[in-house]
Design a protein around this nucleic acid. Sequence first.
DNA 1: TCTGGGGTCCTAGGACCC
DNA 2: TCTGGGGTCCTAGGACCC
Length: 425
Amino acid sequence: MPRAIALVDCNNFYVSCERVFQPKLEGKPVVVLSNNDGCVVSRSQEVKDLGMKMAVPWYQMKDLAKRHGIISFSSNYTLYADLSNRVMSLLSRFSPNQEVYSIDESFLDLTGITTDHTAYGQEIRRTIRQCVGIPVCVGIAPSKTLAKLANHVAKKKPRFGSVCDFSSMSATELDALLASVEVGEVWGVGRRTAPKLQEIGIRTVLDLKRAPAKQLGARFSVVFERIVEELNGVACLELDDVAPAKQQIICSRSFGTLTSLLADLEQAVIAYATRAAEKLRQQHSMAGGIQVYIRTSPHREQDPQYQQAILMPLHEPTDDTRLLCHAALHGLRQIYRSGYAYQKAGVMLSEIIPASARPRTLFDDVAAQQKSSALMQTLDRINNRMGSGTLKLLGEGTDTRWAMRRQNISQQYTTEWNELAVCRI
DNA sequence: TCTGGGGTCCTAGGACCC
DNA sequence: TCTGGGGTCCTAGGACCC
C-alpha cells in the first residue's frame, strides 16, 4: 500500500491565536513580535501583502506600520502553547500515528485510511476551525518532504482550497506543478544552498527531483541524497510519534536593557538555569554539564565587544536546580569582565541522560538524593499549579531591570482565572 | 533606544592511539 | 634518519528548521 502522509500547518499561527479572542482583528493587518518586541515573527496575510518580510527588526518597520495601521502584539507564548495543545489533540483523532513537528505543524499518517484524502483534509480543516478557531492548510503526499511541499502549494494556490493531495494527481500534472515552485521552497534547502543550486542549473523543485542524488550528496552533504529520494516519492523519513528526549536544553534571552553589572547577569543566569532545569525534569533526564555564555550586542559596533562561554562539568549527572545554578554561577564569575555592556546571557545543559540511567557509585549519598528529588518534585508541583515562578531561588531576584520588554501582550485568555475570556450569550 | 529563541544534523580538523 | 596510515573522539562552526 502506498504511503500517505499529511502535513497540517496552522496559518499565521500566532496572529491567528490573537484573532481567536479578538475577532475584530479579522481582515486587519496584524503582526506578532519576538521577545523584547525585537523582530516580526508572525504576519497576517494583509501584512504579507504589504511586502513585510519575516524576522525583520520591528523598529525598522514603524513607518510602514503607522501608514497602514498595522496592529502589533508582543508574543504571548503561554496562550500559543495552550491553543497548540488543543489543535494537536484534535488532530490526533484523525490518525493512529501523529508526529507533532512544531508548535503549529503536525504530520499525520493517513496510510490505510480509505476515504478520499482531499475530503478528509477538508474535514480536518473544518474541525480545527470550528473547535479552536484556527485556520489550517493540509498537504498530502507519499513522503514527508513532498507533504511539506503539498502544504506550501495548498497555502499559495487558491484553486486547491487549502488542501492539496499530490497523490491524486497524474505524474505529468504533478511535475508541471513542481516546475512552478522555486527550489528554495524545498524543506532542507535554505538561503545558502538555494543560490548554489541555481548556479548549477537547478532552479525549480522539478529540476531538483530529476537531479543525480549521489552527485549532489557529494557536492553538498549526504542529506541531499535523501531530499532527492523523498522528492521522488521514496519515503526516507519516518514519523516520530514519540518525541525523543532532547540532547541539549538551551535557555537564553536578550535583555530588555543592556547591563554591565555582574549582579544582573547572576540573576539572569539563575533564572535561565532554573527554567532549563524544569525542562530537564519534564523529560525525566539529568545533565552532566552546564555551559554558560554572555555577550555584548553585535549590533553596536562602536562599543567594545566581548563574548565568552564556559562549560562546567558536574561531578555527577543531576536535575537539581540548586546544583545547576551553583555551577552556572561559578562559571559566570569566571568569564565575567567588567566594563562591557552585556546584551544577552544563556545557559545550555549537555551530556543529557535519562534519569533512570544515572550511574550509581560507591559513594552515592542516597538520602541526599532522595531529599533533592522530593524537593524538586514539590517545586515543580507548586509552580505547575500556581503559575511558573511562584516558588524560586532567592538569587533570581525580584527587581529584574534586565527582564525583557513586552509592551503589548494580550491576556492569558485560557490559562489564568482572572484573565479568562468571557463569552456573552 | 529598539535586531528572537530553541533545537538538530553534518563536516572538517585537531588530538590521540596503535 | 626515517616522519605512514587508519581509527576514534571531541569541538567548533555552518546550515537548516520553526
